[in-house]
């Protein structure tokens, strides 16, 4: 459970820092009057706050899945995953998709309408290609004797890539809705595109973290850190 505890600790630090800045140590009964302090996040748009909260939920979900993997690793029948090569190609596509969305954000800020449409198209296409690659990886694993119920590592790979894929589908739906609004001009679409880009980066980070846990790199790295510390 160390992964999810680390995640919760991170959320707690952010939350407590924010609370402290909100003046939770003040005595409200002495502060009568119009307004005694400027309201909380101020510049933060509601959509961004909503996405932030959602990312905490989704991050927690994957942190828990990662924790389940590391707990399951402790048992005798675990052995290292042999991931098909197409997984790495897929990961590259996911990274490209993330970059494309970031480029779309820059285009929207410049007010470059055609560029925005192009980059959104590129991002959506590479993301769809990533999903295809994941499908190929599933098929390849099933062919090579790593079916869903064959090894614990394979079971987790299917489970986690499946959950991740569902999150991607949700993202693509959101991106499609943004794309339909492009006609209103790049300026109007800019905030929504920025939200999509944040979500895309999140999907990339989560996927890399999950790969690191599934392949055992994360536990190797943790073991190395422990060895250095002790």
């Amino acid at each position: 459970m160390s992964i999810v505890l680390g995640f919760v600790a991170l959320v707690a630090v952010i939350a407590l820092t924010w609370l402290w800045r909100q003046g939770v140590a003040e005595r409200p009964w002495l502060e009568t009057g119009a307004v005694t302090r400027s309201p909380s996040p101020g510049s933060q748009p509601t959509g961004r706050a909503g996405l932030g909260v959602f990312l905490i939920v989704a991050g927690g979900l994957f942190a828990l899945a990662g924790s389940a993997v590391t707990m399951r690793m402790g048992y005798a029948d675990w052995f290292e995953m042999r991931l098909p090569r197409v997984v790495w190609a897929g990961t590259a596509l996911l990274a490209l998709s993330s970059l494309a969305l970031q480029a779309a954000v820059f285009a929207a800020r410049r007010g470059d309408g055609p560029g925005l449409a192009r980059w959104i198209g590129a991002g959506a296409a590479s993301m769809a290609a990533f999903l295809l690659a994941q499908g190929l990886a599933w098929a390849r694993m099933a062919e090579t004797g790593q079916g869903l119920a064959a090894t614990p590592g394979a079971s987790f790979f299917y489970l986690i890539s499946g959950l991740h894929g569902l999150h991607i589908l949700g993202g693509l739906v959101a991106l499609a809705r943004v794309a339909t609004r492009l006609r209103a001009g790049p300026g109007a679409a800019a905030p929504a595109v920025a939200l999509c880009a944040i979500y895309w980066h999140f999907l990339l980070i989560v996927w890399i973290a999950m790969l690191a846990i599934l392949t055992g790199w994360a536990s190797d790295a943790a073991a190395l850190c422990r060895a250095i510390l002790s």
């Binding site: 609370l19 909100q22 003046g23 939770v24 005694t36 309201p39």
Partner: peptide
């Protein structure tokens, strides 16, 4: 969405 003046405390 807190209204104006509605600080956390």
């Amino acid at each position: 969405a807190r209204t104006r003046g509605m600080t956390l405390m």
